[in-house]
Design a protein around this nucleic acid. Structure first.
Length: 178
DNA sequence: TAAGTGATAGTT
DNA sequence: ACTATCACTTAG
């Protein structure tokens, strides 16, 4: 299992969003490992009206401005956590929302949709700013498969909703329903 | 299709 | 303090 290096994340957010498809998200809890394959992502940029970073650094959005390769976890709609991977070089904001997983190992409940994903992997604010290159939440290289990537509109946003910044693996059954 | 849920951010 | 909004989910 090869963990993705920090340099993987320190690039253009859209590139990272596409390349995270097919990678393994691994959540370690004690000796237990919950593993899923990433099948759906969304890119959020600094100069992006739909992004938390759009109005500059705030207490919530600060992780998006910091070092790439860390988690940005936020709480939304009074019920759900969403997991992002921080992208771009230090000082430039960017993040990839990890929307859906295909279960690989020990995934006990559905992980299609960002809220379900964090519930299935027991991810909450305690993992905000966690280092995705080591520790209890990491992302590793996937199989050498070829995927057709479908670009699509992002879900649940009211601004910049025409942009095709959502990406998913064509034909995969675990992409979130709309 | 609509309601629920509470943190967040911007405004008084 | 107050309020609108929100990168969602579930029930109906």
């Amino acid at each position: 299992m090869r963990i993705l290096p920090r340099s993987f994340y320190g690039r253009n957010t859209k590139v990272v969003a596409r390349q995270l498809l097919g990678k393994y998200l691994i959540r370690k809890i004690g000796r237990r490992k919950i593993v899923g394959k990433i099948v759906e992502t969304e890119a959020y940029f600094q100069d992006d009206p739909a992004s938390h970073a759009f109005r500059g650094k705030t207490e919530r959005s600060a992780p998006m401005f910091e070092h790439p390769g860390h988690a940005y976890v936020y709480f939304i709609y009074g019920n759900h956590y969403c997991l992002n991977a921080v992208t771009e070089k230090f000082g430039k904001a960017g993040a990839v929302l990890i929307r859906s997983l295909e279960p690989v190992r020990s995934v006990k409940s559905a992980a299609n949709g960002p809220g379900r994903l964090t519930r299935a992997l027991k991810i909450d604010k305690k993992l905000n700013r966690a280092d995705l290159t080591k520790g209890s939440l990491i992302i590793a290289e996937g199989e050498r498969e070829r995927y057709n990537i479908v670009p699509a509109k992002r879900i649940g946003i009211s601004k910049a909703s025409n942009k095709l910044y959502r990406f998913y693996i064509k034909g995969n059954k675990h992409v979130s329903k709309i």
